[in-house]
Design a protein around this nucleic acid. Structure first.
Length: 573
RNA sequence: CGGGGAGUAGCUCAGCCUGGUAGAGCGCCAGCUUUGGGAGCUGGAUGUCGCAGGUUCAACUCCUGUCUCCCCGACCA
């Protein structure tokens, strides 16, 4: 392809509304343009790269035995009513009406649609296991789209759905997808790490997210230094092995005036103790009933864990009025001793002696709290977010925190959707049972941007060979020089014939200008053909990752490029 | 939805406080020179100053409303 015949609007300056490197580079390299918040057009080069990611996804999904199809992006409302998700996803779905005022939604995901199909078309255990996937545009009314393709209202997703006869068989389907994901991200040149994740509103028993570590990531991850554990912060468990014995541990409870200091940091500063020594007592409403939650002053409640521990549908912090009624004090002075409501004690408080608690009396705290002596809780529970420095669940590794972008997510769904939509099959005994499902998503467009976020330098993108819009760029320094162009186009044709895609920069520009653009665009290999070099019978070959080029005889250019491409591809197989 | 910031040429931005016929750099067009890491000179085109009202002899500038975009948070497969 000739550069001069392709729309590649590169920008020298950094566009105003892009903050992270990958977003800036996608705009500067002319891969995408914004239409509105969270809405992007793929320009020719961006689209080529996107299709390369899609091709890898297809190959690996097919290899894992999944079948590709394509479902409608627009659905009648009724099917979402059948699973109850019209209500639960109300804020996520775009809703439209047709001219007969029939209610439709733009699909944010497709569990209902595929499950409905399977319920109609699959009826015997002999047809299982099966796994269907599609690559399609999804619509979600994101509250805050951001970072270019990272979080959009409209984005391209690969979604797959597996159906099995039993949960053991479903575990096998899950593992196949997990393995396929490892292959997909490796081939895309991405370092993606699988982490344990929460299933959220999706339902189901367990899940893993594939995270690309980078600063711009929207998720926090905890990872054990011995490699034994990695989990999304929402889900992560850890053990705190800090001592919870503090000074004056054996003294009796004692009230102390703390006028106008209700916040943890203020109380700690006022009493000259560490926040960790304080016991935070929070009042929550669980399905409308108040409960008290106790944890160290330097930890935060994980409301997901809290909800799970309580088995409650809805858990929210109590309003100040309720706090006053329950504790008899203003917000900031709640304490566990004397409360008449259920108490949940986080396990990081185990063995606490000498702590500081609220006195359930405004402007008053109590010193020398001893958990076992003063409260004697029946059980300790895990309701806090772990912190970097905690022990991993194996009690050997230490946890550290990093941020990541979620590029893929695999779920074990169980029978939630098959029950709701009647996806039953007859088993060997002729008994009708619901299929056990799994679902597996990859944010294809997000993956593309994650590649750039992870692979760039100060000059531009550094495409991994398998997803580069073109593998080779032939920079013709003097397009008017006949021999230069003849050689370039002949070589390009030859390379294309062996399955290597080539862009020829035939623009009438100064060399420096073209080199800058080449680095910005990030093609893995650049072959430079110049009039002077040709006079000496040489051309230059330079990988994007190298500082300098290699002179090679012009007549051997084909072999040299082909070999270099082969090496790059081998390294990323 | 709360908080903050911004909408002026294709891009990056100045001008606004203190009202008086709209600017720079880059890009674009033409010509000449140049030609190995985003060239130089000369000439040229380009704006309903986001939109709608209001104040004023006069509004990019002041006032009111409104729309859009970005950031933080809340929210959220």
């Amino acid at each position: 392809m000739l550069w001069s015949k392709t729309l590649i609007p590169t920008l020298k300056e950094i566009p105003q509304d892009a903050e992270i490197p990958s977003h800036q580079l996608m705009l500067r390299a002319g891969l995408i343009r914004r239409l509105g918040s969270g809405l992007y057009t793929y320009l020719p080069l961006g689209f080529r790269a996107l299709r390369k990611v899609e091709a890898i996804v297809r190959e690996e999904m097919d290899r894992a035995g999944a079948q590709e199809g394509l479902m409608p992006a627009m659905h009648p409302r009724e099917i979402w009513d059948r699973s109850g998700r019209y209500e639960t996803l109300k804020n996520v779905m775009f809703r439209v009406k047709d001219r007969q005022a029939r209610e439709m939604v733009l699909g944010p995901t497709h569990e209902e649609i595929i499950t409905d199909l399977v319920s109609r078309e699959i009826s015997s255990y002999k047809q299982l296991p099966c796994n269907f996937y599609q690559i399609q545009t999804k619509f979600r009314d994101e509250i805050r789209p951001r970072f270019g393709l990272m979080r959009c209202k409209e984005f391209i997703m690969k979604d797959a759905y597996s159906f099995d006869i039993s949960s053991e068989a479903a575990d096998g389907s899950y593992q196949k997808m997990y393995d396929a994901y490892v292959n997909i991200f490796r081939r895309c040149g991405l370092h993606a790490m699988p982490v344990e994740a929460d299933t959220g509103d999706m339902g189901g028993s367990s899940s893993h997210e594939f995270m690309v570590p980078c600063e711009a990531g929207e998720d926090a991850i905890l990872e054990a230094d011995d490699g034994s554990y990695a989990a999304n912060m929402e889900r992560a468990e850890g053990f705190c092995d800090l001592p919870s014995l503090f000074a004056d541990a054996e003294k009796a409870l004692e009230e102390i005036a703390t006028p106008n200091v209700g916040k943890i940091e203020d109380v700690a500063a006022f009493l000259k103790v560490e926040p960790r020594q304080l016991v935070k007592t929070l009042i929550y409403m669980a399905d409308g009933k108040p409960v008290a939650v106790l944890l160290p002053g330097d930890r935060e409640v994980n409301e997901i864990k809290l909800r799970n521990v309580l088995g409650a549908e809805d858990v929210v912090p109590a309003d100040p009025e309720t706090v006053r009624k329950v504790t008899g004090a203003e917000v900031g002075f709640a304490g566990p001793v004397g409360l008449e409501i259920p108490l949940l004690v986080d396990r990081t408080l185990e063995g606490l002696k000498g702590g500081v608690i609220g006195a359930n009396k405004t402007d008053t705290h109590r010193l020398h709290f001893d958990l076992a002596r003063d409260l004697a809780p029946e059980a300790l529970v895990d309701i806090a977010f772990p912190k970097a420095g905690d022990l991993a669940p194996n009690r050997k590794g230490r946890l550290s925190e990093k941020r990541g972008v979620e590029v893929g997510h695999v779920f074990k769904l169980g029978t939630k959707y098959s029950l709701a939509l009647g996806a039953n099959v007859l088993d060997e005994n002729g008994k009708s049972i619901p299929a056990v499902m799994g679902c597996y998503g990859i944010g294809v467009s997000r993956t593309l941007q994650a590649v750039i976020e992870q692979s760039h330098d100060e000059n531009g993108i550094i495409w991994p060979v398998n997803v580069a819009p073109y593998t080779v760029l032939i920079t013709v320094l003097s397009p008017k020089h006949e021999e230069s162009m003849t050689r370039a186009t002949a070589l390009a044709a030859e390379l294309e014939n062996t399955g290597i895609d080539v862009m020829v920069d035939d623009r009438e520009e100064r060399p420096g200008f073209k080199f800058k653009d080449a680095d910005l665009l990030g093609f893995p290999l650049r072959l430079t053909i110049g009039e002077r070099g040709l006079a000496k019978g040489i051309v230059e070959l330079k990988p994007r990752t190298e500082k300098s080029f290699e002179e090679i005889p012009a007549d051997e250019a084909f072999d040299a490029v082909r070999d270099a491409v082969t090496r790059l591809r081998e390294a990323q197989k």
